[in-house]
């Protein structure tokens, strides 16, 4: 049986700029995270999956069919675009029901599905408010409502968590996981590793228009962990902290920054390092002022992987 989504040698270029470069992959039911920094080609890839852009080269199929100008397929697909654009004059309920009508449902069905979709994204109370008056988080949720209102089998979510507050983010993550559990094929993009990790273990890692790695997020993690992880700590007594840290085998380097009362530690097991740090600080009565990790961003991950 063929995969739900399948890309073969897929490329897209705009003039001289290559956005997606010879990408091949297949996606089945469940949640797949499309991870990559800004400009990696995630949105372009998603728009090609949704038939909004025509591939410059290669082919993309959904349920074994080409998607470009194949409008009947959209009955089985839902798309939450990245852009924060709406028919601002409409209320949330009008927005969802107007788009549902295009799926060919009867008025009763439109009404029932609108109610259900709004309930699912917890916008029932604000259903009659104009979208123009919605907060950023509500706008993201109404986009998700229109995405799933027709109960699609394939759900494509382009940066759905952008602009959401922590509570909204948590709820949205739960929704994505639920859809995955329901057997839908969900592709969700983000440039934040933790967000994707919270939604799925299955990822496609994109960088400079190419798929750099695919598979289990833990394998990617391990790959990252093979490289020393830098942690920058500003505290009341950096030298005493260093003394305690060098006793652990995963710590492979310590560098002091005298001007800022700080030190940078290199560890090969960042998770273990973070687990033990609070205890060490407490037991020695050292005040922690700042804890940052320049390695804890996606760019650093890609830097490792490309090396």
């Amino acid at each position: 049986m063929s995969a739900v989504l399948e890309a073969r040698n897929l490329s897209k270029w705009y003039g001289q700029v290559i956005a997606v470069n010879g990408v091949s992959f297949s996606v089945d039911a469940g949640v797949t995270g499309l991870l990559g920094p800004n400009g990696a080609g995630k949105s372009t890839l998603m728009k090609m999956i949704m038939g909004q852009l025509r591939p410059s080269q290669g082919e993309i199929t959904v349920f074994g069919q080409r998607i470009w100008n194949n409008y009947p397929l959209f009955a089985r697909m839902g798309f939450c675009p990245e852009q924060d654009s709406f028919y601002e004059r409409m209320s949330g309920a009008e927005f969802v029901s107007s788009l549902l009508r295009l799926n060919g449902y009867s008025e009763e069905e439109v009404s029932r599905r609108t109610d259900a979709a709004l309930e699912r994204v917890r916008l029932t109370a604000d259903r009659d408010k104009k979208i123009a008056a919605y907060s950023k988080g509500m706008r993201q949720r109404i986009k998700m409502a229109q995405t799933v209102a027709h109960d699609p089998e394939v759900i494509i979510l382009d940066e759905p968590l952008a602009g959401m507050d922590p509570v909204g983010r948590h709820e949205a993550i739960q929704l994505v996981r639920d859809w995955g559990r329901e057997g839908k094929c969900v592709v969700v993009s983000s440039h934040i590793l933790h967000e994707i990790e919270a939604m799925t273990g299955n990822i496609l890692l994109m960088h400079n228009g190419r798929v750099l790695a695919e598979g289990d997020v833990h394998q990617i993690r391990e790959l990252i962990d093979k490289h020393p992880h830098n942690v920058h700590i500003r505290c009341s007594d950096p030298r005493r902290l260093a003394e305690a840290l060098v006793g652990f085998s995963d710590v492979v380097g310590v560098r002091f920054h005298p001007e800022g009362n700080a030190l940078t530690v290199e560890s090969r097991q960042p998770d273990a390092f973070y687990d033990r740090l609070p205890g060490l600080l407490l037991s020695r009565g050292i005040d922690l002022d700042e804890l940052t990790s320049p390695d804890d961003n996606l760019q650093a991950v890609f830097h490792y992987l490309v090396k």
Binding site: M50, G51, Q52, N69, Y71, P72, L73, F74, A75, M77, G78, F79, P81, Q83, S85, F86, Y87, L99, L102, N103, G104, Q146
Partner: peptide
């Protein structure tokens, strides 16, 4: 310009 065309183009409706 309003980037709302995506909503219409991703529905099962011929262009």
């Amino acid at each position: 310009e309003g980037r709302t065309i995506t909503y219409l183009f991703t529905r099962p409706v011929p262009k």
